[in-house]
Structures are given as C-alpha cells and as structure tokens.
Amino acid sequence: MPSSYIPIFIFLAVAILFPIVLIVVAKLVRPSAPFLTKLEAYECGIKAASNSRGRYTVRFYIIAILFVIFDVETIFLFPWAVRYKQLGWFGVSEVGVFLVFLVIGYLWAYKKGALEWI
C-alpha cells in the first residue's frame, strides 16, 4: 500500500527543512568575527601537535566486524519472529540450528579475547 508512505515523505520534508531553516536563520542573526587563533583545533589551550587523523586502537575494527556478523543474525531473526506461529516447530528447530552455529562463533570470539577491551 504505497499511500501509507506519503506521510513518511511529508515528515521527511519537515525533518529536512527544520534544521536547514534553523541554520539559515542563525546565519542571518549571528555575529561573525573569526581570527586565526580562534579557528584552531581545541586542545586545552596548547597548539595542536599533529593532525588527529592518525592511527587508533584496532579494538574498534574488531567491534565493527563482530557487529556486522551479529547484526545480520538479528535481522534474520525478525522475519522469523513475525511468521513464528505459522512456522511452528519447524521454525523453532531451524532457528535452533542457526543459533547453535552462532553461539559457537560467539564462544570462539570470546575465547580468542575479541570481546575483551583491554
């Protein structure tokens, strides 16, 4: 039923216009007096030592990869949950097998220390 999507687009227009209007209005009324020191990176008063786009800890990548795996799994669970009562015991066993594999993967990641932050 495409007609139920129309209000979404109306509200999307509201949600897009609202920040634009606010930022444009702010541009009209606010003062502007930039100078060199003011525009520097904030680093508690001292001069920024280096560009901040350097390396950072690999933990964030591991978390991101784990997230992709487990989020796909939760997305699989949603259609299953919606058709659950029609699927009956077939649905229970199928997802049971699926989750067993997933839990093995989770335990392996846990044992490897991927979930430990330090």
């Binding site: 541009k27 606010r30 003062p31 502007s32 525009l39 520097e40």
Partner: peptide, 12 residues
C-alpha cells in the same frame, strides 16, 4: 541565545 551565538567553522 544559541541562534545569536557566533558560528565558527574551524580552519582544519
């Protein structure tokens, strides 16, 4: 207050 504050775009 927020509307009338200076809106800086830092150079970096």
């Amino acid at each position: 207050k927020l509307l009338t504050k200076e809106d800086m775009i830092p150079s970096h």
